[in-house]
């Protein structure tokens, strides 16, 4: 464990050095993610200029859900962004061999290799929105709810990571799986709004199949209403754990099935 942490720290330092090389790129990247979310919030404000409530939620509550959903998304984006490269080109180009020859776990190596600072845009925006809206949205912070908040954020991030690991691993069989990851990943857009606005079919899909509803709406429902912590918070932990186990087993099988594509 100590060795792993040391390796992670060394790789991180290397990463930050390369970031300094492309400083402008980093700034424009982070700025774009902030603008993107700001436009999303502008949209919510325009809607609420015409209506008092959306699906029974006030403006501040919707902003809280929206902001909350950005935090796990940003965390996963920051720490595991390299998983995209597995599905898009690492396996296809035959570059995956490199990871198999090192004396550390390939999955850990892939993840540790890239630290995506651009995600700071999403994280800053998400935290700011949660802080600004929490008061007016009647979120009560007790020691217990703060603990639940931290747990929910960590496990919600793992839902993202698990979906990326599971779909990236498909590349071991089909060489390129980036688009499949993309389709699954885009489903997270549904997490930003109350699931009650969707049809039953969509609600079932985002709760039980691609469970992004647990990265936004469900945990927020607990913080906003105090209702049903077993499902709303426990669900996040359960879903993330199950999903991660499935993803890791796909990854393991994939490693066995992997044949180098390079020459």
């Amino acid at each position: 464990m100590k060795k792993t942490l040391k390796i992670y720290r060394l790789l991180l330092v290397q990463n930050i050095k390369t970031l300094m090389e492309y400083r402008i790129d980093f700034l424009t990247g982070a700025l774009s993610f902030i603008i993107d979310q700001a436009v999303g919030i502008g949209f919510i404000f325009i809607i609420f200029s015409q209506i008092p409530q959306l699906a029974g939620f006030t403006l501040e509550q919707i902003v809280f859900i929206y902001g909350f959903s950005l935090i796990p998304k940003g965390l996963d984006h920051m720490f595991t962004d390299n998983l995209w490269s597995v599905g898009y080109f690492i396996v296809q180009k035959g570059d995956f061999d490199k990871y198999l020859t090192r004396p550390i776990d390939p999955l850990f190596h892939i993840i540790a290799e890239k630290f995506q600072i651009d995600a700071a845009g999403e994280l800053i925006m998400g935290i700011a929105l949660v802080c600004v809206s929490a008061g007016a949205a009647n979120v009560v912070f007790t020691p217990l709810s703060v603990l639940f908040f931290i747990i929910a954020i960590i496990f919600a991030s793992l839902i993202y990571t698990a979906i990326k690991i599971g779909t990236a691993a498909l590349a071991f069989w089909i060489k390129v799986s980036g688009q499949i990851t993309q389709v699954f990943y885009m489903t997270n857009e549904f997490a930003k709004y109350p699931t009650t606005i969707y049809s039953d079919f969509i609600r079932t899909v985002i709760t039980y199949i691609v469970p992004f509803a647990f990265t936004g709406y469900y945990p927020c429902l607990y913080f906003l209403t105090g209702e049903n912590p077993l499902f709303n918070i426990g669900g996040v932990v359960a879903v993330a754990t199950i999903l991660l186990l499935i993803a890791l087993s796909i990854w393991k099988r994939g490693l066995k099935a992997y044949e180098s594509a390079g020459s």
Binding site: Q50, I51, Q53, L54, A55, F190, Y193, I197, Y198
Partner: peptide
């Protein structure tokens, strides 16, 4: 589709 349902809820609320 996300936006479609958001708008549906908006029209329902208004």
């Amino acid at each position: 589709f996300v936006m479609f349902y958001v708008w549906k809820a908006v029209f329902a609320a208004s």
